[in-house]
Structure formats: C-alpha cells, structure tokens
C-alpha cells in the first residue's frame, strides 16, 4: 500500500515535470518564432499562421522561415538527444556523446568532401554521405577501442576526440581550397540551424520517426544490458542485435541532423544527463524524454544565439559548446579512473 502510494507520488511528480518541460518547449518555440534580428508582433504572426493573408510579404516570409526553423530545431535537438542517450547506453559510458565520439565531425567531413569534389546538391545525397561519414567515424572509434585490452570510460573519449580532431582538421583543409566560401567553412565547423529548407524537413521527419521507434524498441533490451552481458543473456536478450540496432539508430539520427545543421556539439550529453538526473536511469523513460529535453535545449540555445547580438546571429553550435564544455569537465571530474 505504502509502496504503491510512493510510486503514485513519484509518477505524479514525473508527469508534472514532463508537463513543465512541454510548456517550456512551447514557450521556447514561440520565442523562436517571434524573436530574432527582426522582431515580429504577436498579431502579425497569428494572422500569418492562420489566415495566410498578410499586409507585408516580408513579414510573411520571415514567419514561415522561422516556423520551419523552430520545428527543425525541435527535431534536431530530439534526434541529438536520443542519439546521445543511445550512445551512452551502448558504450555504458556517461561521457559519450555523438560530438565527443567524433561521429558528428565524421559526417561533416564527408559532406564537405561531397560538396568540394563530387558537387552534390540534393538533400538525399547530403544525408547519404553524412551517414557514411558517421559510420566510418564510429567504426574507427570502436575499432581503436576494441584493439585494447581494458576499456575504461576515458579511453573511449580519448579515441573519439582523436578521431574528431582528425576529421575537423581535414574539414579545414578541404574548405581552405575554396576560400571564397568562408561562411560555409564556419557552417561546417560549428553548425547552425538557419539554412534548413522544407525539402530537408521532408527527409528528416520520417528518418526521425524511424530512429525514435527503433530507439524505443531497443530500450528494454538496453536496460537489461546495463546489468552486464551475462545477465542480459539469461534474461533472453540478444546483446549483439540490440547493440547494433541501437548504434545504427543513434548514428542515423545524428548523421541526418549533421547533414542538415552541421556538427552541433554536446546536446546529446546535456540532454541525457539532465533527463537521467530528473527521471532516473530507466532507459524506457530516458530515451524518449531526452528527445524532449534535447529539443528544449536546442531551441532555447537557438533563441539565445539570436538574441545575444543585435546585428548577427550566433551559431547555435557555439552556444551549445559554451554550455556543454564545462559540463563535460564537471563529469570528467566525477568519473572514477584508476590513477596512472
């Protein structure tokens, strides 16, 4: 009796928290639509949304662009959040994040190569190349780690960072050949949400949905794997299949987000840790909810980036790194390693 009331209370708390997060996300979304280099009044926005008749076509186009951007921010944040929690679950490593493991930069490098040498132009080509790059990067990182005898949390991070540094210096090299495109260079170095098109969204939504579903389906299996491979085997979980599915889902989500927005760092890390702090370690909750927190974080970061300076916008990747890097340091301080 007592236990169930406690569970009820706990559930109520969690539902409250979820509602608060949803509300915050809605607020951030509206802020993202109204605020920016050019502010738009509420009435204008509403009439643009519902009547499609506007006095000024400029405001109209701005609003449509911003709405697209806001939805894109939510999806991107969600994808990176899920990807982060999948990576942390698969590697059983609290420091894992697509950007720290170099998966982001790998995808970014392949897209840049495609732009520079293969003259790719369609969204599907972008996404395809990004996926290949993410796979290569992930393969490299896990390959390096697999060679070793002992795996501790920091080994993986080091390999990931090395791969990430390698790819980002390669990106610089490729972009230097074409110095006319300094803006593009910046885009592929830090990531920004401003360049999304509706065509990109039509590709992103189905991939996001598939990735989300696969992730949620993997969650119980991953939960069992947290107890160790032996226990999971006894519970009837096929470790290999679950790990591969989760990995590929995480990589696809991250690669697509990177193909459309450039490498955005640390969202996975932030979202997953925040979610786990509030809702506990159960992956059935953590995975979907980290999508929510990721969306909230990325949308807010985007709004902040637009508000900080009057004349230009700060790329969202800069804001997330500024917040995420101290968190990484904090987490590294807490991680236990044997003294070398």
């Amino acid at each position: 009796m007592k236990k169930s009331s406690y569970v009820n209370l706990h559930n109520k708390m969690e539902i409250k928290l979820i509602v608060i997060f949803l509300l915050l996300l809605v607020i951030a979304g509206f802020a993202s639509i109204f605020m920016g280099v050019k502010d738009i009044t509420f009435g204008n926005a509403i009439s643009a949304l519902f009547t499609h008749k506007m006095k000024s076509s400029l405001a109209n186009s701005i609003i449509h662009k911003r709405i697209l951007r806001t939805f894109f921010a939510c999806l991107c944040g969600g994808a990176l959040g899920i990807s982060g929690s999948l990576m942390q679950a698969v590697t059983r490593n609290p420091l894992a994040d697509p950007s720290i493991l170099g998966i982001n930069t790998g995808a970014s490098f392949f897209v840049v190569c495609g732009l520079a040498f293969l003259h790719i132009s369609t969204v599907s080509q972008y996404i395809g190349l990004a996926f290949v790059g993410a796979l290569v990067a992930a393969g490299l990182v896990f390959g390096i780690v697999a060679i070793g005898h002992q795996v501790n949390p920091l080994t993986l991070i080091l390999s990931g960072t090395a791969v990430s540094i390698m790819f980002s210096s390669l990106v610089t090299t490729v972009t230097l050949v074409r110095q006319d495109a300094i803006d593009q260079f910046r885009f592929w170095q830090v990531g920004s949400l401003g360049t999304v098109t509706s065509q990109g969204m039509t590709f992103f939504i189905p991939i996001f949905v598939i990735g989300f579903l696969v992730a949620v389906c993997c969650a119980p299996g991953l939960n069992a794997l947290m107890l160790g491979n032996e226990v999971a085997k006894n519970l009837g979980v096929n470790a290999t299949i679950i790990n591969i599915c989760a990995c590929i889902a995480g990589i696809i989500l991250c690669a697509t987000a990177t193909a459309l927005a450039g490498p955005i760092a640390f969202i996975g890390l932030l979202a997953t840790h925040c979610t786990r702090l509030l809702f506990g370690a159960d992956l059935r909750k953590v995975i979907p909810l980290s999508a929510l927190t990721g969306a909230l974080f990325l949308t807010s970061a985007d709004v902040i980036g637009r508000l900080v300076s009057d004349s230009t916008e700060i790329n969202v990747g800069i804001i997330t790194s500024l917040v995420g890097a101290p968190v990484l340091i904090y987490l590294a301080r807490r991680t236990k390693v044997q003294a070398a």
Partner: peptide, 16 residues
Amino acid sequence: TRIIVVGIGLQAFYNA
C-alpha cells in the same frame, strides 16, 4: 587521462 579529458573540455570551450 582525467587531465586529458579536462583539457579536451577546455579546448571545446575555447573553440566556441
């Protein structure tokens, strides 16, 4: 290793 990871964090911050 911890020093290195902290360094990586610092580096990310500076790059931002």
